[in-house]
Protein backbone atom coordinates (compact mmCIF):
# COMPACT_ATOMS: atom_id res chain seq x y z
CA UNK A 1 0.00 0.00 0.00
CA UNK A 2 0.91 3.64 -0.31
CA UNK A 3 2.66 5.27 2.57
CA UNK A 4 -0.27 7.24 4.01
CA UNK A 5 -4.03 6.90 3.48
CA UNK A 6 -5.97 10.13 3.95
CA UNK A 7 -9.61 9.90 4.97
CA UNK A 8 -11.87 12.91 5.26
CA UNK A 9 -15.17 12.64 7.11
CA UNK A 10 -17.82 15.27 6.39
CA UNK A 11 -20.82 15.47 8.69
CA UNK A 12 -23.25 17.61 10.60
CA UNK A 13 -22.54 17.93 14.33
CA UNK A 14 -24.36 15.16 16.22
CA UNK A 15 -24.32 12.64 13.35
CA UNK A 16 -21.33 10.79 14.72
CA UNK A 17 -18.58 11.96 12.38
CA UNK A 18 -16.08 12.29 15.21
CA UNK A 19 -17.06 8.91 16.61
CA UNK A 20 -16.47 7.42 13.18
CA UNK A 21 -13.00 8.97 13.08
CA UNK A 22 -12.18 7.56 16.51
CA UNK A 23 -13.36 4.06 15.55
CA UNK A 24 -11.21 4.10 12.39
CA UNK A 25 -8.24 5.45 14.36
CA UNK A 26 -8.57 2.84 17.08
CA UNK A 27 -8.98 -0.04 14.63
CA UNK A 28 -5.97 1.25 12.68
CA UNK A 29 -3.75 1.17 15.77
CA UNK A 30 -4.99 -2.34 16.60
CA UNK A 31 -4.00 -3.35 13.07
CA UNK A 32 -0.52 -1.92 13.59
CA UNK A 33 -0.80 1.34 11.67
CA UNK A 34 0.50 4.68 12.79
CA UNK A 35 -2.41 7.10 12.92
CA UNK A 36 -3.33 10.76 13.38
CA UNK A 37 -6.73 12.43 13.49
CA UNK A 38 -7.86 16.03 13.57
CA UNK A 39 -11.12 17.88 13.29
CA UNK A 40 -12.72 21.22 12.68
CA UNK A 41 -15.70 21.57 14.92
CA UNK A 42 -16.91 25.05 15.64
CA UNK A 43 -18.64 26.14 18.77
CA UNK A 44 -21.98 24.41 18.86
CA UNK A 45 -22.63 21.11 20.58
CA UNK A 46 -24.67 19.97 17.58
CA UNK A 47 -25.73 20.85 14.02
CA UNK A 48 -22.62 22.72 12.95
CA UNK A 49 -20.47 21.80 9.98
CA UNK A 50 -17.95 19.16 11.07
CA UNK A 51 -14.92 17.88 9.20
CA UNK A 52 -12.63 15.21 10.60
CA UNK A 53 -9.38 13.94 9.21
CA UNK A 54 -7.96 10.46 9.71
CA UNK A 55 -4.55 9.54 8.38
CA UNK A 56 -3.05 6.10 8.66
CA UNK A 57 0.13 4.51 7.37
CA UNK A 58 3.64 3.47 8.34
CA UNK A 59 4.56 6.76 9.91
CA UNK A 60 2.13 9.67 10.02
CA UNK A 61 3.36 13.05 11.15
CA UNK A 62 0.92 15.82 10.25
CA UNK A 63 -2.62 15.40 11.56
CA UNK A 64 -3.94 17.53 8.68
CA UNK A 65 -3.87 17.11 4.95
CA UNK A 66 -4.67 19.56 2.20
CA UNK A 67 -7.39 19.90 -0.44
CA UNK A 68 -6.65 17.45 -3.24
CA UNK A 69 -5.10 14.88 -0.90
CA UNK A 70 -8.02 12.76 0.35
CA UNK A 71 -8.01 9.10 -0.70
CA UNK A 72 -11.49 8.63 0.71
CA UNK A 73 -14.22 11.07 1.55
CA UNK A 74 -16.80 9.60 3.88
CA UNK A 75 -19.92 11.74 3.89
CA UNK A 76 -22.66 11.40 6.46
CA UNK A 77 -24.60 14.22 4.81
CA UNK A 78 -24.85 15.41 1.21
CA UNK A 79 -24.32 19.17 1.55
CA UNK A 80 -21.37 18.68 3.91
CA UNK A 81 -19.85 16.23 1.44
CA UNK A 82 -20.31 18.73 -1.37
CA UNK A 83 -18.66 21.36 0.82
CA UNK A 84 -15.51 19.21 1.13
CA UNK A 85 -15.42 17.65 -2.34
CA UNK A 86 -12.32 19.68 -3.27
CA UNK A 87 -10.36 17.57 -0.78
CA UNK A 88 -10.59 14.62 -3.20
CA UNK A 89 -7.33 13.41 -4.73
CA UNK A 90 -7.30 12.06 -8.28
CA UNK A 91 -8.01 8.50 -7.15
CA UNK A 92 -10.39 9.42 -4.35
CA UNK A 93 -13.49 7.35 -3.65
CA UNK A 94 -16.39 9.31 -2.23
CA UNK A 95 -18.76 7.28 -0.05
CA UNK A 96 -21.78 9.27 0.99
CA UNK A 97 -25.07 8.65 2.76
CA UNK A 98 -28.14 9.87 0.87
CA UNK A 99 -28.93 12.00 3.90
CA UNK A 100 -29.92 15.63 3.51
CA UNK A 101 -29.98 18.03 6.44
CA UNK A 102 -30.91 21.46 5.13
CA UNK A 103 -29.28 24.19 7.20
CA UNK A 104 -31.18 27.18 8.53
CA UNK A 105 -29.57 29.30 5.81
CA UNK A 106 -30.73 26.86 3.18
CA UNK A 107 -34.29 26.83 4.44
CA UNK A 108 -34.58 30.60 4.65
CA UNK A 109 -32.44 31.96 1.84
CA UNK A 110 -32.52 29.49 -0.99
CA UNK A 111 -35.06 27.43 -2.85
CA UNK A 112 -35.45 23.99 -1.31
CA UNK A 113 -33.30 21.29 -2.87
CA UNK A 114 -34.24 17.72 -3.38
CA UNK A 115 -32.02 14.90 -2.21
CA UNK A 116 -31.79 13.73 -5.79
CA UNK A 117 -30.48 17.15 -6.92
CA UNK A 118 -27.66 16.91 -4.41
CA UNK A 119 -26.85 13.36 -5.40
CA UNK A 120 -26.62 14.41 -9.05
CA UNK A 121 -24.48 17.41 -8.17
CA UNK A 122 -21.97 15.29 -6.29
CA UNK A 123 -21.90 12.66 -9.03
CA UNK A 124 -21.36 15.30 -11.68
CA UNK A 125 -18.38 16.66 -9.73
CA UNK A 126 -16.93 13.32 -8.78
CA UNK A 127 -17.36 10.15 -10.81
CA UNK A 128 -16.08 7.70 -8.24
CA UNK A 129 -18.95 8.29 -5.85
CA UNK A 130 -20.96 5.67 -4.01
CA UNK A 131 -24.33 6.86 -2.78
CA UNK A 132 -25.50 4.72 0.11
CA UNK A 133 -29.04 4.36 1.46
CA UNK A 134 -27.46 4.53 4.85
CA UNK A 135 -30.52 5.59 6.81
CA UNK A 136 -32.49 2.60 5.62
CA UNK A 137 -29.66 0.23 6.52
CA UNK A 138 -29.13 1.90 9.90
CA UNK A 139 -32.82 1.58 10.67
CA UNK A 140 -32.64 -2.07 9.76
CA UNK A 141 -29.67 -2.40 12.12
CA UNK A 142 -31.77 -1.00 14.92
CA UNK A 143 -30.90 2.70 15.14
CA UNK A 144 -30.74 5.61 12.72
CA UNK A 145 -27.86 6.88 14.83
CA UNK A 146 -25.75 4.00 13.50
CA UNK A 147 -25.70 5.61 10.04
CA UNK A 148 -22.01 6.39 10.55
CA UNK A 149 -21.26 2.69 11.05
CA UNK A 150 -23.04 1.80 7.79
CA UNK A 151 -20.64 4.13 6.03
CA UNK A 152 -17.75 2.52 7.90
CA UNK A 153 -18.88 -0.88 6.59
CA UNK A 154 -18.97 0.34 3.00
CA UNK A 155 -15.61 2.06 3.44
CA UNK A 156 -13.93 -1.06 4.72
CA UNK A 157 -15.43 -3.25 2.00
CA UNK A 158 -14.12 -0.82 -0.62
CA UNK A 159 -10.74 -0.07 0.93
CA UNK A 160 -10.03 -3.42 2.53
CA UNK A 161 -7.75 -1.56 4.96
CA UNK A 162 -8.80 -2.80 8.37
CA UNK A 163 -9.50 -6.20 9.87
CA UNK A 164 -13.02 -7.19 10.92
CA UNK A 165 -11.73 -8.06 14.40
CA UNK A 166 -10.12 -4.70 15.00
CA UNK A 167 -13.18 -2.82 13.84
CA UNK A 168 -15.41 -4.82 16.11
CA UNK A 169 -13.11 -4.23 19.06
CA UNK A 170 -12.87 -0.53 18.25
CA UNK A 171 -16.65 -0.24 18.09
CA UNK A 172 -16.97 -1.94 21.46
CA UNK A 173 -14.37 0.37 22.97
CA UNK A 174 -15.51 3.67 21.49
CA UNK A 175 -19.31 3.46 21.45
CA UNK A 176 -21.41 3.52 24.62
CA UNK A 177 -22.61 0.07 25.60
CA UNK A 178 -26.22 0.55 24.57
CA UNK A 179 -25.17 1.48 21.01
CA UNK A 180 -22.74 -1.38 20.38
CA UNK A 181 -25.04 -4.05 18.97
CA UNK A 182 -26.80 -1.73 16.49
CA UNK A 183 -23.41 -0.33 15.48
CA UNK A 184 -21.94 -3.76 14.79
CA UNK A 185 -25.01 -4.74 12.82
CA UNK A 186 -24.92 -1.48 10.86
CA UNK A 187 -21.26 -2.07 10.03
CA UNK A 188 -22.11 -5.53 8.72
CA UNK A 189 -25.02 -4.26 6.65
CA UNK A 190 -22.85 -1.57 5.10
CA UNK A 191 -20.11 -4.07 4.37
CA UNK A 192 -22.50 -6.57 2.75
CA UNK A 193 -24.22 -3.85 0.76
CA UNK A 194 -20.91 -2.75 -0.75
CA UNK A 195 -19.91 -6.29 -1.60
CA UNK A 196 -23.19 -6.99 -3.32
CA UNK A 197 -22.99 -3.72 -5.21
CA UNK A 198 -19.69 -4.71 -6.76
Amino acid sequence: MRKIVNILIASVGGQGGLTLSWVIARASVLDGFSVKTAETLGMSQRYGSVMSYVRLGDSVKSPLFEPGEADYILGLELVETLRRIHYASGSCVVIVADEYRPSYTQSIKYPALKTSDLVEKIKSLWGRTLIISARKLAERAGSVRALNMVILGVFNAVSNLLSRESIERAIREVLPEHAVSASLRAYELGFEYAQQAR
Binding site: M43, S44, Q45, Y47, E80, H86, Y104, T105, Y110, L125
Partner: peptide
Protein backbone atom coordinates in the same frame (compact mmCIF):
# COMPACT_ATOMS: atom_id res chain seq x y z
CA UNK B 1 -3.12 26.19 -5.28
CA UNK B 2 -6.55 27.18 -6.42
CA UNK B 3 -9.30 25.47 -4.51
CA UNK B 4 -12.39 24.04 -6.05
CA UNK B 5 -15.19 26.37 -5.07
CA UNK B 6 -18.92 25.94 -5.21
CA UNK B 7 -21.52 28.67 -5.01
CA UNK B 8 -23.03 29.43 -1.60
CA UNK B 9 -26.31 28.24 -3.06
CA UNK B 10 -24.85 24.76 -3.43
CA UNK B 11 -23.25 24.71 -0.03
CA UNK B 12 -24.93 27.32 2.14
CA UNK B 13 -23.11 28.05 5.39
CA UNK B 14 -24.27 26.16 8.46
CA UNK B 15 -24.02 28.60 11.36
CA UNK B 16 -23.94 26.76 14.71
CA UNK B 17 -27.45 26.88 16.21
CA UNK B 18 -28.90 26.35 19.66
CA UNK B 19 -30.05 22.72 19.96
Amino acid sequence: RSEHTLSPQDTPPRPPPLC
